[in-house]
Design a protein around this nucleic acid. Structure first.
Lengths: 210, 210
DNA sequence: CACCAGCACGAACATATGTGCTATAATAAA
DNA sequence: TTTATTATAGCACATATGTTCGTGCTGGTG
């Protein structure tokens, strides 16, 4: 079903209101914001918007309007707990970091980047040692705190002998582990299983420019 | 000043409430949510939280609490208006795309990725033609719709002769334009100024994995 | 024409909700 | 101890706000 222009207008107004004020409007605020003359008109159209799945309303709750469109994922604040660089292990997320928002640096993202996964933290890449994984100096990697990964997943692995972390696709093979750079033009490297320690799974890479 | 444990508790509750319900709690909901026995206690502590800059309140507005901490950037829905690939120009954002949220695909990010810039849209990278800019097949590039860029900025440039778009750092030199890959190990390419057409500025690259 | 569904209006109502006031306990300062 | 200062309770009040209901206006249908 197609929305009437008045319903579109109401939906837009809720959007604007929400992004300006961070809380939903009342029916009467919609009335004056959209030049409508009666609260019941808004109530009528809100009921339609709800049955069409555009919003959700909590009965008898003031300002109890939730927008269902265009916020499939919530905001999420992930701590940037340190840097990842060749030559040093990545910092382990300690419980107190999750606790308060006061971890030195944080990054705000939305859930559709993490796809609902928990235990997410971020690292800033230092140096050019990950270019073969198409990760540049200064990039941010979103990590999930895990100790094992599936074959083919991108992981942060600590190479004990080399004293080095690197971000590669992980493949457990017969007697060895194959670490495959994301960049298909680069060759894989092979290491002994006892030499690798998985420190986390990479779920996204973010690079900001300019 | 340090927050009392009750104030921390209230702040945390507002956080949790907001992320579950998308609208702020009432004073009485805070009362029952934090096991407090009187509305005036909450009022008392909210006043302190406000004077300390943790929240903002609108007088006489129900649920008029705004969290000032941890949402420096708002949610933002950017349209993914197409693909970028060598051999075809990038799609131009037409006005109707910004209009309705109904552009086929959208990406939800937060403002601290765009740093407040307007006219932002996204493209999905098709193919491996941008690997020298450390951009992989499937990556998403956030673009700002501009026609000129500063020297050194990463831009999407259309090479008329080659009939190709590419993402490179842009440098206007004496009689030529230098296009420098992000990957420092790769060489720059030089083209005639009349052969290039800037199609947008790259403000971020996002890669989702697994 | 009568009838009806979709939509808009305005007013009245019930309650959800912020605020103010007073009293009391807990704590710090003198 | 006495005196401020701070923190908590409890309650009453004003109003902010969702809901209901009767009415009128349109256009389409039999």
């Amino acid at each position: 079903m197609i929305l009437s222009s008045k319903q579109q207008q109401i939906l837009d107004f809720i959007h604007r209101f929400l992004s300006r004020r961070h809380y939903p409007p009342t029916i009467r605020e919609i009335v004056s914001g959209c030049g409508i003359s009666s609260t019941s008109v808004v109530g009528y159209n809100l009921k339609i918007l709800e049955s069409e799945g555009y919003i959700r309303r909590r009965p008898d709750v003031s300002r109890g309007i939730e927008l269902l469109t265009s916020h499939p994922g919530h905001r999420l604040v992930v701590p940037v707990i340190g840097q990842i660089a060749a030559g040093e292990p990545i910092p382990v997320p300690t419980p107190d970091i999750w606790d308060v928002a006061a971890s030195a640096e944080t990054l705000e993202i939305t859930e559709d980047l993490t796809r609902g996964r928990g235990g997410v933290y971020a690292l800033r890449v230092k140096g050019l040692s990950m270019v073969d994984a198409l990760i540049n100096d200064g990039d941010i990697v979103l990590m999930q705190s895990v100790n094992v990964v599936e074959n083919g997943e991108m992981a942060a692995v600590w190479l004990k002998a080399e004293k080095e972390v690197t971000l590669k696709r992980f493949y457990a093979e017969d007697r060895r582990v194959r670490l495959q750079p994301a960049n298909r033009q680069m060759k894989a490297i092979y290491v002994a299983p006892e030499n690798v320690e998985i420190q986390g799974r990479v779920i996204a890479v973010i690079r900001q420019l300019g």
